[in-house]
Design a protein around this nucleic acid. Structure first.
Length: 290
DNA sequence: AATGCGTGGAT
DNA sequence: TATCCAAGCAT
């Protein structure tokens, strides 16, 4: 159970143990926070940490990114993964310029209306930059709450009701609530990890319902496992994009053929990349968008 | 609700 | 080495 004793212990642990990550520096503005949160969607913090400063030096405001050539945006995105995020980030920059005068909005519904921004990212910006009071629910928070509050070893697959579940745990004051949210995330990342939790180092072990119950194994529903990556359409798409990032001219489709053993699958990959707007096809060649 | 979407670190 | 998993989102 998380209560008036364990939450202050959690906050104290956070102040003493938090990683020194770039987006936690005081000079990070709303745009820097938003960009970092997009990069952090399914990409580990340590990998984002080495890319974020260079990105923001190049495009320090939404207007700068809005005006950038998309092929340069995709090249700068590099190997962070899920490159559709880079396209949507640029779309979001353009929407911020057009709808919000170039300033990142504070309102959660306005943030949710931006492309590539969902329940987690919208509230992360509203809470961690603007200091408002909202539940911020990512995979770490869901796992910590599943264990400490509900006594289960794993979180159930993400669902809309997670928002209300976590909101009920937050202190009344926005400042206290934001520390609880960031501390729950950090605890899940450093201590209450998915694989080998370090319960001996946990600041709320005494309050943990999973520990009190003797660490029962998880019995609930799980999200379906990802399909194998080797030989997948995703790998084929990644191979094509990697080749296109490495050159600044269109590649003839005949030049792509040696990169992938299955010609039909390669064709499928290029077609789906084109459908996503990640590549353009013209005159039997493929290139990154302008 | 279930899928598809990249890449690399951790175990 | 193989598998899991990572500050999710859109459809």
């Amino acid at each position: 159970m998380l209560d008036g004793r364990s939450l202050p212990a959690l906050a104290a642990w956070y102040r003493a143990s938090a990683r020194d990550l770039p987006w936690r520096r005081p000079e990070f503005d709303a745009w820097g926070t938003l960009v970092s949160e997009i990069m952090l969607q399914q990409t580990q913090a340590a990998r984002v940490a080495v890319e974020i400063d260079r990105w923001l030096e190049r495009w320090p405001t939404p207007a700068d990114l809005a005006d950038a050539p998309t092929h340069e945006v995709l090249r700068q995105w590099g190997t962070l993964g899920y490159p559709r995020r880079a396209l949507r980030l640029q779309d979001t920059a353009r929407a911020i310029v057009e709808r919000h005068g170039g300033e990142v909005p504070r309102d959660v519904d306005a943030l949710l209306a931006l492309p590539g921004i969902g329940d987690y990212t919208a509230r992360a910006v509203a809470v961690f930059h603007f200091g408002d009071r909202h539940p911020v629910v990512d995979t770490n928070v869901r796992r910590v709450v599943a264990r400490a509050v509900h006594g289960r070893g794993e979180a159930a697959p993400a669902a809309k009701r997670d928002l209300a579940d976590v909101e009920a745990l937050l202190p009344a004051s926005p400042a206290d609530a934001s520390v609880v949210s960031i501390a729950l995330m950090e605890l899940g990342a450093l201590v209450c990890t998915a694989r080998a939790p370090r319960c001996d180092a946990c600041p709320i072990a005494d309050a943990c319902a999973w520990r009190a119950a003797g660490y029962p194994p998880y019995e609930g529903r799980r999200a379906p496992r990802q399909a194998a990556f080797a030989g997948s359409d995703r790998q084929a798409r990644g191979t094509v994009l990697r080749a296109l990032r490495a050159v600044d001219v269109p590649l003839a489709e005949a030049d792509l053929a040696p990169l992938w053993p299955d010609a039909a699958q390669l064709e499928r990959a290029v077609a789906s990349l084109a459908a996503d707007g990640l590549v353009l096809r013209e005159h039997g060649a493929v290139r990154l968008p302008d």
